[in-house]
Amino acid sequence: MAKPKIGIYGLTGCGGDQLMILNLENELLDLLRNVEIVAFQEASSVQQDEEVDIAFVEGSVSTELDLERLKDVRKRSRMLIAIGDCAIGGCVQAMRNQEMTMKEKMEEVYGKGEEYFKVLEPYGLSKYVNVDLELQGCPIETTEIRQVFLSLLHGDTPEIKDYPVCVECKLNEYQCLLVDKGMPCLGPIIAAGCNARCPGLGIDCVGCRGPIMNETNAAEELHTLLEKGYDERYIENRLRFFGANFEGILKLSKMLREKTGGARGK
């Protein structure tokens, strides 16, 4: 059987997800033996714009150039996998989405009357093209990308974890930081896959893997943390940091905006 052709591409993002593929280090060569890489932006200057079996795309669509490149990649790939939060929900770039316009944002950062890129409000890939699989994380986990590679090479659809970090905490018998210590842990609504790395180190989950698709009870997270004495704006910011474009959090933000009549501090 011919080796599957793989392309690894990056849009607007930090490159961390591609780096996690490189971080497979010891197993990387074994893995690459089974595939043909035609593009790997972060690892090689070779860039062949040919058809691929699987395209891995990291980064959000934040410029018109991103969008153009994404559409091109989609056209010539059989399967498109979004890797990392940027490519799924826009991640940190999107944290002020819908709170202010792009023009306002650009002016705030670069000042009035400057020349900018042709920017778009940051979103994940699925807003524009059909995405076959989404691998959450900021960045993605090496263990997960490894398992995705192996599943695909084995001929199967990879299984993505769609349960919260709480499950991994319990399976590892990590102390509950939310219940026992009253820390502002986002574990109950954030997708697992990190093996609860932070809670295992005593650090409350900041939500870097993004909320669980279609399952996020953001309103209850707000309520729970309010009860523990945290400030509403602080909680909202914490939720929006990685997850501003996720349905549950969008809804919550909208509700909070309506409550305060749109008069939100920056």
Binding site: V167, K170, G187, P188, N217
Partner: peptide
Amino acid sequence: ADKCFGCGS
């Protein structure tokens, strides 16, 4: 269920 996170704890 409105209160529940569905976290499995």
